[in-house]
Design a protein around this nucleic acid. Structure first.
Lengths: 223, 223
DNA sequence: GTCGCCGTCGTACCCCGGTACTACCCGCCA
DNA sequence: TGGCGGGTAGTACCGGGGTACGACGGCGAC
């Protein structure tokens, strides 16, 4: 069950969100706040999974509230929701640590799937903003083609097959065996076989040591 | 009416996409291609609004096909769809000029709304990748100009005590709970208490994700 | 042809890791 | 004086991870 705190200064807006969320059987509204200060206090008290945060509010605004909630170290994720997609606050919100940025005229299903994504640790950005972000940063994305040393050439990984290196990569992204099996369309027993062979070949004792090896060989890199 | 070209080497996969798209009254399938070369040729001929592009294909792969389609100057947008949300594919695809990157296990509604967003000139990125993009680039968004933060004060570790950071460090060196207890002269139950608190505070699901976080925050570095 | 490697899948078993709770001691401070 | 955060420790439970098997189809090398 995903718990959501609704933060908006307009009661009618909050009501609409509450109706939408309560209509879902995997979500529940933990509470409502009308400004940033209330949002911070209620988050500390209720520990909701997701805070649905409006930006423009009297008193403490949504950006600053987001910053403090994120800095609190709580597991709560903040999803910013605003009326204007050209809002100059979008970048500020993301920089403040928000897990997402959506526009209020999004379809209800889009909002719901956004909340679910954020609750599970992922992030969402409104398509119109994504376009601008990509236009700005596409040229600066990390390149995989021109990396100097090929991890495959590292003697510690040399005996791994291509498939095994793939498995090790996703292990190093924190996936469980069950997740690997489902996302790669394999049986869990197959995943376990791969993992076992990776450990045997590399000398790692468990998947934690395998992850460390993946970093050391630059098979994966810190983000 | 949005016209879509389906590019995938697996006929059954194409069939599934076709069924889904044709069930929508604002979309139609312009054609199907089984590899990158076909995709380029058919795009030049049919001028679809959106190309649904698989990455892994025999012959010319989806990345290179995307690059050429975008370079052709056509108005066609490319939405990359893959089973694998590995970073290198994603970055390459976006750098090649794709308007989006989704994972095949996305919900049908998510795929459809992604196609509509791309057709209208916006862009979409899978939530799991968006999270990583934000983690990487949030500090470099416009109007930032902030200095590189002190790794020890990373917000994701801010709530950890000194002792907990110490425990996280040795976890990230591959030690088991038993080894930590013996080498630090603690009871194993104490170690478990620390580990549990670290996971709760950081939001990591297990020690593997905690290790990844330790690398990402530069608490530890690849050797 | 057949041998071996690779990728896939299955069963059975055991142990470590993680959770949930409680508990005690210490230093700090309002 | 009491409360609070931090570090330590214990018990009990259970699920996932890792091990040890065996098995089979595809495929390239010899």
């Amino acid at each position: 069950m995903t718990t959501v705190l609704i933060v908006d200064d307009q009661p009618m807006q909050r009501f609409g969100f509450r109706m939408l969320l309560e209509s879902q059987d995997d979500m529940t509204v933990a509470g409502e706040a009308g400004n940033g200060s209330e949002a911070i206090r209620m988050t500390a008290e209720l520990h909701p999974d997701v805070v649905l945060m409006d930006i423009r509010m009297p008193g403490l605004d949504g950006i600053e509230a987001t910053r403090r909630i994120v800095a609190s170290g709580d597991r709560t994720r903040v999803l910013i929701l605003t009326t204007f997609d050209l809002d100059e606050y979008a970048y500020d919100g993301l920089r403040a640590g928000a897990s997402g940025f959506l526009i209020k005229d999004a379809l209800p299903e889009e909002l719901l799937s956004g909340i679910r994504a954020v609750a599970s640790g992922d992030a969402v950005v409104a398509p119109s903003l994504t376009r601008r972000l990509l236009d700005t940063y596409a040229d600066h994305l990390p390149t995989s083609g021109s990396s100097p040393a090929d991890p495959a050439d590292d003697p510690r990984l040399a005996s791994l097959t291509e498939r095994e290196r793939e498995i090790l990569t996703v292990i190093s992204q924190g996936w469980t065996n069950a997740e690997i099996s489902s996302r790669l369309h394999l049986a869990e027993s197959t995943v376990k076989t791969h993992v076992g062979r990776i450990l045997a070949k590399t000398g790692a004792r468990d998947r934690v040591q395998a992850v460390i090896l993946a970093y050391d060989t630059r098979l994966v890199r810190p983000s």
